[in-house]
Simulated scan of single mutants.
Amino acid sequence: MSHTAHIPSHRKPRRGGSRSALRAGVAGGFLSTIAVAGASGPAHAEPVTETIEMPVLTSADLSAHVAQAAAATQEIALDAELQAQEDAAALKASKEAKKAKAEADREAEAKKKAEEKARAEAAEAAAAQERASRSTERTTLSTTASTASAPSSQTASAPASGSAGTVVAFLKAQLGDAYVMGASGPNAWDCSSLVQAAFRQVGIDLPRVSQDQSVAGTQVGTSNLQVGDILYWGAAGSAYHVGVYIGDGKYLDAANPSKGVVIQDLSGYPATGAVRVL
């Protein structure tokens, strides 16, 4: 025994009794809980059980599944191959259609060019024929004028009968020719060169410019015109344009670059005056 055991404050407490009381309390509480639960629940509770049956796969089942999966995979592959073939066929058809269209366009363009060339050649042939016809007429007129006219030095004198018709015939043979300032034929004229060439067919040698032609013959009034009279616009001696009266209130002249050699109505553009050289 310790030498301090007789001192109360140094005695160790007895743990055995406390542990016994604690066990008793815990046990009592646990039993009380069981009793309460038993009282509140059913008198005869049966345990609930559930049985789940798991499928049993045999080797035949596995083989069937594998076969089905392989068939499905093969079908997908066939579908993909068919789709690829269809796409390739569509692409080929599209390319062939484009090629055919391009070929058709080339043929249409070639046909158009051929037609244009044919029209141009036809127009050129017609123009050449027209030029040949005019040349023939001019040759005939020149021959007639040489036979029926006075000497070429004659100025504003009266030639042989029918000279006015010869002048007008020559002028009409030039219809459609171009107007070019300073030109003197045979396919392009200005106003005064055309008048000069026309009267040269009957042996009358007129001055070259309109100012001089406006005073080359006898002045006549525009209300008393005869076929073959020279019309002028502007004052006598300073006229800026000339033409020839061909009857029925009309005259023929090399009008301007847009019209060329034409027949016009005198009422639409009245002349200032006229001179008579026939």
Rank of each mutant, 00 (worst) to 15 (best):
A37K: 08
A39Y: 13
A39K: 01
A39H: 13
S40N: 01
P42G: 06
P42F: 02
A43H: 04
A45M: 03
V48I: 06
T49H: 07
T49Y: 00
E50Y: 01
T51P: 00
T51V: 11
E53T: 11
E53V: 11
E53R: 11
M54L: 13
P55G: 06
P55M: 02
P55S: 06
T58P: 11
T58F: 13
A60M: 09
D61E: 15
D61N: 13
L62Y: 10
S63A: 15
S63N: 12
H65A: 10
H65V: 09
V66S: 10
V66T: 11
V66I: 04
V66M: 01
A67V: 05
Q68V: 08
A69Q: 07
A70W: 00
A72V: 07
A72K: 04
T73E: 08
Q74K: 14
E75D: 14
E75A: 15
I76Q: 14
A77F: 10
A77T: 15
D79Y: 06
D79G: 14
E81R: 14
L82S: 09
Q83D: 11
Q83L: 01
A84D: 10
Q85Y: 00
E86N: 01
E86L: 05
A88I: 01
A89Q: 04
A89V: 03
L91G: 08
L91R: 09
K92W: 09
A93C: 02
A93P: 00
K95R: 15
E96M: 07
A97L: 12
A97W: 02
K98E: 15
K98F: 14
K101A: 15
K101N: 13
A102V: 06
A102T: 09
E103F: 12
E103L: 12
A104Y: 03
D105K: 08
D105T: 00
D105S: 07
E107Y: 00
A108W: 03
A110S: 02
A110Y: 02
A110W: 04
K112Y: 09
K112V: 04
K113A: 11
K113T: 06
A114H: 09
A114I: 04
E116N: 07
E116Y: 02
E116S: 05
K117T: 06
K117W: 05
K117N: 02
K117E: 10
A118W: 01
R119I: 09
R119S: 11
A120L: 11
E121W: 04
E121P: 02
A123Y: 11
E124V: 00
E124R: 09
A125M: 07
A125K: 12
A125W: 04
A128R: 14
A128S: 13
Q129F: 02
Q129D: 10
S133Y: 08
R134D: 07
S135T: 15
S135Q: 15
